[in-house]
Design a protein around this nucleic acid. Structure first.
Lengths: 352, 352
DNA sequence: GTGAAAGCGCTAACAA
DNA sequence: TTGTTAGCGCTTTCAC
């Protein structure tokens, strides 16, 4: 087994109290003693067990991170930001994923709370209506939400509504009038709903009629034929959309591939705008236009706010921190004649 | 604070021992008592603190996961596999990343060991020569390596040498003769070195001369101009390569973009083969050819082997589990005339 | 400057 | 069946 403070004490010829002090408050112990203790520690390769400390009721220096999934690099990027600061500051991270499932969210939070984490950083499906968060507000460890865009709770996010609004305005500025929004399951994500609101506002402000969002299972490898048909020639006889606003980049990429397989070229036959600004999107051809969220920074900011809350140095009265989004123009958006005509075709490009 | 077993005992009117038994061995306590205790637990919303249990020296049901980075989806995918099984089996995961840095690897392992994790799942830069792993073999918690392809230690991996060999053979079968391998830092990854070995073997077996691997910083946003120049027209006057074997998909994607920006079309002017089989690669255009590793399965298998080792049901004498790799043909590989001529150009494709 | 001892939440002898 | 108690590794009074 691992050596304990007792072993060190015996080896050094002092009491465990002295060893403890030598570790935690070196200046309160005689330099000679200190040296001996340090030798013993080195000799035994002793590392104090956090368990003992944690049990004593101090900080555990454990932080729980609850994310929907790691399959979406958005969250992996956030986690990178968190991990960077956490490990620099000597905290340990306990990770749980929920797959957007409410039961798993509950389970994760309870498990982490039982483990006596000092704090929690989480992205939940629906922040406003989450009873567990109320519970956390009352008793639980402190927490900061990430990417959940709510004014009711401590959170770090972009302004999803505004970001979507800005993005759709850009599409409109490029001459698009029939713009369709694609989403995963709206019910599963407060963010997606806010993005739809922004979409609708931009449309209305331009005198256009927002269409209902088209929900898509983007975990499927293939785009469903019915969806594809809807995009390329809607059943109701209406003109097909000229641009798609996708509520996330992963979705945009899947749609892009589906369209291309159907020989529907992007952006010549269809413009596409994503959301998230995944680094990967820039590697596509053409590079994906996207509304970029600063994911790593969101992770870092969430960490800093959590620590501030733990230390009660959370002076900032506002619960919510809104980070700026940016538009990445990419090359998946074509300008079309404002007469609402078919998009122009690009000339065939010569090979070098 | 959270309620403790004492609070429950007081509330229920029994001793803490009875409460403990009610939780851990319900059949040993009187049904009536059991019911009362359960009521008390529910009333107080009590959840036993793992800390107490952990300190008692039992299993902590904590498993440490040490990964180079989450920026590469390969590791995020492995982690997904691990997390799935871990949470189903009531384990908690403590995550640390190392950025391929030996010091951080050491630090992560020590931190996790100090936290008294039951076991460790890790991907290190160089498994064979890692002194800390020897130390773990002796005293540490048990561990299983993931993606580290070594016969000397418990590990789950593909056969990196063979996989690279197979991939390069495919390139050769397509008529390529000047095949260059691109890698990150060879020194930082035992996997990359094995892949180079496989590359060299395939080349030699076909009577071709392996070239030295070209090392590239693929964290950079841009391909260095010198690298680009080397790919498109090597300085030494030799003919340029017709195919690139990239030691990972991320690298392949960056190179692909760099080439394209330089108006060097893939696969017409250059064929590309990646390694990892990232799902994302299929969304590229053209879809990236790659040697696919079953990342999620590797994570799951590593988990299962770790648990087997913890339970001492590790009957399988072999340390190493080798999972099969597959070739994904994609569309980034063009056939060229075996006369070693320039790759044929594809005819310009008509738009639909 | 140092040591003895209590106690954090829990489990597992051992007693009753 | 239930209770009492020791002890896991550590920090922290309180004496000396």
């Amino acid at each position: 087994m691992n050596p304990t403070i007792k072993d060190v004490a015996a080896h050094a010829g002092f009491s465990i109290a002295t060893v403890s002090r030598a570790i935690n408050a070196p200046h309160t112990v005689n330099p000679v003693t200190l040296e001996k203790v340090r030798e013993a520690i080195a000799a035994l390769n002793f590392r104090p067990s956090p368990l003992g400390r944690q049990l004593r009721g101090e900080r555990t220096r454990l932080v729980g991170v609850v994310l929907p999934t790691l399959a979406n690099p958005v969250f992996a990027e956030c986690l990178q930001g968190i991990d960077e600061l956490a490990s620099a500051q000597g905290y340990r991270l306990m990770l749980m994923t929920t797959q957007y499932d409410a039961d798993r969210e509950r389970h994760a939070i309870e498990t982490l709370r039982a483990q006596r984490v000092d704090g929690l950083i989480l992205t939940v499906a629906d922040a406003d209506t989450h009873p567990l968060l109320d519970e956390l507000d009352r008793n639980g460890p402190r927490y900061v939400l990430m990417h959940n865009d709510t004014v009711r709770r401590p959170s770090v996010s972009v302004d999803n509504r505004l970001a979507a609004y800005d993005g759709v305005r850009m599409l409109i500025a490029h001459g698009h009038r029939r713009i369709l929004m694609l989403a995963g399951t709206l019910a599963a994500s407060d963010r997606a709903r806010l993005r739809y609101t922004g979409y609708a506002q931009a449309m209305e402000q331009a005198g256009l009629t927002p269409m209902p969002a088209l929900e898509i299972d983007f975990n499927a490898d293939e785009l469903a034929p019915s969806v594809l048909a809807h995009l390329t020639s809607p059943a109701n006889g209406a003109a097909r959309p000229t641009a798609l606003f996708c509520s996330n980049d992963l979705l945009a990429m899947v749609v892009m591939r589906g369209l291309r397989r159907a020989r529907f070229e992007v952006p010549d036959n269809m413009s596409i705008l994503g959301f998230d600004g995944l680094a990967m999107g820039e590697l596509l051809s053409p590079p994906l236009a996207s509304i970029c969220t600063p994911n790593r920074e969101i992770g870092c900011a969430a960490w800093e706010r959590l620590i501030a809350r733990l230390d009660d140095t959370y002076a900032d009265a506002s619960l919510t921190l809104t980070l700026p989004h940016t538009l990445r123009e990419g090359a998946t958006i074509a300008a079309i004649a404002s007469s609402d005509a078919e998009p122009r075709k690009r000339s065939v490009q010569a090979l070098p």
